[in-house]
Design a protein around this nucleic acid. Sequence first.
DNA 1: CTCATTTGACCATT
DNA 2: AATGGTCAAATGAG
Length: 351
Amino acid sequence: MEFAMENGLTLEQNTLINELTQGMELAKQLRAHLNPTSSNESRELLLQKILSSYEKALLILKWSGSVGNPQSVAPVTGLPESSVSGDGSPQSDDFDRGFKDHLEQSDVSKKRKLMPTWTDHVRVCSENGLEGPMEDGYSWRKYGQKDILGAKYPRSYYRCTYRSTQNCWATKQVQRSDDDPTVFEITYKGKHTCSQNHHTSPLEKQQLKQSNNGNSHQQPPPENLLFNLRTNLRVSTEDLNNKEVASNFTFPHSASFKWMNGENQNLGFSSLVNDHTLGSYSPSFISPATSETNYYSVPPFRMNNMVHNFQHSESEIISATTSATNSPIGELDFSIDLDPNFPFNSPGFFN
DNA sequence: CTCATTTGACCATT
DNA sequence: AATGGTCAAATGAG
């Protein structure tokens, strides 16, 4: 169900703004911590939070991009799973799955397929004691676990905690990597329509429990240890890249992106990356006055470019599930969209 | 008590 | 029929 996006800011836009603003603030804090007296831990913590913020922002953006798309664009992508106009459907999402009605059931399944999907690869770092929210900052409720064929570890299924209360249908699957047990593949499906403020505490609990239940395969779970050391989930940059590539399939060529102000959007990112004077922009970010949302044909969103630049360090880990369906076409599409003006190639993006 | 997780059963899709 | 995804009753935690 699409919540009123007609006027003003949507929930996700607000969340996006919040994340970016927060990221900026954190970056400023980090800058303040660059003096030698500051501890590495605090820097790492800030860094982690910044990454988390942008991670979230990216996820939201991907969604928005696909949502703003006219359906016509979707088929071109060749990525059935993520090429979506989730909001394009006139049907409502209100259907409760509990209803076994056939019609609803089929509708739901259709919707399922249309749900945007992307995968993150998250690595657990035991090294630094970073208390941090789970990478996505949302609170999830586990609703299932399955042994997956050929997979060493079971897959866990989560849905948004506020599914019932706020009609939020976002879900995610967590699958521990076969070869690198410190890596978790997290596949997200659907967007969050809830307005949860990310609190750390419940999340950590959840993660702990999640880590505990892998016992069906009796292995000395290092994950317990790792999680107990404070879950520090680091999104590796390469994975981010992959994710971005995948997401690009979602809104190819001229994806129209719904945003309140194109300038701001660019300012936000470029300034954050290039400038060290970040603060000044944040007020302009919030312009709720514009009740009418404008559609900007966003050529390549700046983030995409950035990611693209990172990318020539070929992708190692690509999500098997989602990107299996990906075709090289997407990459072509992608590079075509490359913005030559794109200023920052610095690999030390977050340094 | 409420709320989250566990876990086998059930369902849909292939 | 096999597999992956979800439901929901039982169980556990607070």
